[in-house]
């Protein structure tokens, strides 16, 4: 329908305006955060939110970055997220292949264990994982939290990749098998290239999830210099209790990586979300 034709009906136009109003309302938290972050706290507190700022200043961004610690919190988030992401995708593609393409005793039980595990409330794992990490000497190291993320995300990733791998026609794999390909070569050279769209969707989604984790960061890490940006922001909040310009600047800086992923990989992000929930 052309735009002109769409607005020819008054009811449709009214509906459209209502939708537009709700959408703008939805974005208000972002807008107010941006407006806050470029002011000085003094000006904001003295003259109120709706006053015109006396000056536009990026000072609070610099403050959050340097003194607020985002200059090391943000790199930490990547140091934790990237290895967890790579490891969990690699391992789950192995188990997904076994569950998707082989008949063996316990196949369905394992699948259900993986799915059940992905839905667990985190609290039920917290204390034993804390103890285990400590016993392995990994408490307060990046490896401890990477190990947990890798293991926990296996459930969701296996489930999703397994469903996707089931849609690959068996004939392709059978042909390779007859040609004498080993199973590992079939997995790596035939199945994995065909699974790439699902892996891309999954990687985008998992990046956001692991990057945004807060609970495990505060359970498994103590040193301030090791914290990812989520836990770091909570510390920053305590440091700058009343300085909302620094807090909102920090919060906005922290979202830059996931927002970039969202802007450039939006399609995959949405695909990942829907694959996960509706194929079930």
């Amino acid at each position: 329908m052309t735009t002109k034709k769409f607005f020819s009906s008054p009811w449709r136009t009214i509906g459209y305006l209502v939708l537009l109003a709700i959408t703008i309302l939805w974005l208000v938290p972002f807008i107010q955060a941006i407006l806050t972050s470029v002011r000085t706290n003094d000006d904001l507190m003295r003259r109120g939110f709706f006053s015109l700022p006396t000056e536009i200043s990026l000072q609070s961004y610099a403050e959050a970055w340097r003194r607020g610690g985002l200059e090391y919190y943000l790199p930490n988030s990547f140091i934790i997220t990237i290895p967890s992401l790579v490891l969990t995708l690699f391992l789950s593609s192995l188990s997904a292949y076994a569950l998707a393409r082989f008949r063996f005793r316990g196949n369905r039980l394992l699948l259900f264990t993986y799915i059940g595990g992905m839905l667990l409330p985190f609290q039920v794992l917290m204390l034993p994982v804390f103890r285990l990490t400590d016993a392995l000497g990994l408490y307060d190291t990046h490896w401890g939290i990477i190990a947990f993320h890798t293991a926990f995300q296996l459930g969701f990733c296996t489930f999703l990749l397994r469903n996707y791998m089931r849609t690959v026609p068996g004939e392709i794999l059978e042909a390779a098998r007859i040609d004498g390909c080993s199973e590992f070569r079939i997995w790596w050279q035939i199945m994995m290239p065909l699974t790439l769209p699902a892996v891309a969707a999954l990687a985008t989604l998992e990046f956001t999830w692991i990057f945004n984790d807060y609970l495990w960061a505060i359970v498994l890490l103590r040193s301030d210099t090791l914290k990812p940006v989520t836990a770091g922001l909570a510390t920053l909040q305590g440091q700058y209790v009343m300085d909302w310009t620094v807090i909102t600047s920090g919060a906005l800086l922290a979202t830059v990586p996931t927002v970039l992923v969202f802007i450039f990989l939006q399609r995959y992000f949405i695909e990942g979300l829907t694959l996960g929930a509706t194929k079930g």
């Binding site: 391992l91 789950s92 192995l94 188990s95 292949y97 076994a98 569950l99 082989f102 063996f104 196949n107 394992l110 264990t113 993986y114 595990g117 667990l120 039920v124 794992l125 204390l127 034993p128 994982v129 103890r131 285990l132 190990a147 947990f148 890798t150 293991a151 926990f152 296996l154 459930g155 296996t158 199973e183 997995w187």
Partner: peptide, 28 residues
Amino acid sequence: LSQLTPYLFLILPLIIYLIWVIGPMFYT
């Protein structure tokens, strides 16, 4: 050997999953 194949694919991820997720659940 071919009957063993799925287990070869499963062994590493499954051990990790059991240690970090399923085991802790019961330990709680």
